[in-house]
């Protein structure tokens, strides 16, 4: 459904995307995961025909972004990272407007947005600018959906949204996926990666991995340990000095470290004890996507 082949794009001397390729099937929920500045938005702008790439091509349902962009625009829904609806129009007027520019009506496709729009329908006469963040998000999704797109592009839809609304939002995406809409979604939150069918990890404009979240974790063929002690700041410094530790990084209240084998755990413990660390805890853990992401650099 969405075929991205060898896309490169540079802005002046800054290489925003470098030889990026992936392929998403119909009805797939595909996640593009990476921190701010990794090139996610540039990739979205290329896929949605807003920016022309320097190299490579994108096919959306076998339509090229170079020649059939008008056809593509009729059949995709795009929700940019920033709320981009008319704040001085009401909720209903916004939805109506976007339905009419796609030559359709709210009634015709109401079944598609019903689950989402019903949350904000009580506020349909309120100006879009006066909605809360979560409601704005729902309205934007409704407007992106109202013309029954084949593919939905969501650029960081959950950034700046509270945890409850985030969960709600992902549930809505599942409903849409289940009626056969292909969804390409980007997020800087690694914990959301597991909710996608497949993900691409993007770093500095390069895809470092494209796979299902399970496979990415399974392919992490290193031993990961978590460390804790009283003086965490000193601990990180000392851990990084240990010869057995290949990589260490702060992870919430713990330090995650990559080692070659479980056998080193005792050795590391002793070394840290000799450096006067108190209440040392070291245990083996299974990796999360974030560990894979950080390790892969």
């Amino acid at each position: 459904m969405v075929k991205v082949e060898n896309i490169s794009k540079a802005f002046k001397k800054m290489q925003a995307l470098n030889d990026v390729s992936f392929h998403a099937e119909k009805g797939e929920l595909f996640g593009i995961i990476g921190p701010d500045g990794a090139g996610k938005t540039t990739l979205f702008r290329i896929m949605t025909t807003l920016t022309i790439p320097d190299n490579g091509t994108v096919l959306i349902n076998n339509r090229s972004i170079f020649t059939d962009y008008m056809e593509i625009r009729k059949n995709i829904g795009y929700m940019p990272g920033r709320f981009a609806l008319y704040q001085d129009l009401t909720v209903e007027e916004n939805l109506n407007f976007f339905a009419s520019v796609f030559n359709t009506t709210i009634e015709e496709n109401y079944h598609l947005v019903k689950g989402i729009y019903s949350h904000i329908a009580p506020f349909k006469n309120r100006k879009a600018g006066k909605l809360s963040g979560g409601m704005k998000q729902k309205l934007a999704l409704s407007c992106a959906l109202i013309h029954k797109p084949e593919v939905l592009f969501l650029d960081e839809p959950t950034t700046g949204v509270d945890p409850v609304s985030r969960k709600e939002f992902w549930d809505m995406l599942y409903d849409l996926k289940n009626i056969g809409i292909t969804i390409i979604v980007s997020t800087p939150y690694m914990d959301e990666a597991s909710r996608c069918d497949r993900i691409a990890l993007i770093k500095n404009g390069v895809f470092i991995d494209v796979d299902t979240p399970e496979n990415i974790i399974n392919n992490f063929n290193q031993t990961l340990i978590a460390l804790k002690a009283d003086n965490m700041r000193q601990l990180l410094k000392d851990v990084r000095k240990c010869s057995q530790i290949k990589s260490a990084f702060a992870f919430g209240a713990e330090i995650h470290a990559v080692i070659d084998s479980d056998d080193y755990i005792n050795d590391i413990n002793n070394q840290l004890k000799s450096l006067n660390h108190k209440n040392i805890e070291i245990y083996r853990i299974s990796p999360a996507i974030e560990d894979c992401y950080i390790w892969s650099r």
Binding site: T48, T49, L50, M70, R73, K74, I76, Y78, P80, R82, F83, A84, L85, Y86, Q87, F98, V101, F102, N103
Partner: peptide
């Protein structure tokens, strides 16, 4: 400035 232009640009307008 508001980004609505971009939203319009991905429609068939």
């Amino acid at each position: 400035e508001k980004g609505t232009m971009e939203q319009i640009n991905v429609t068939p307008v």
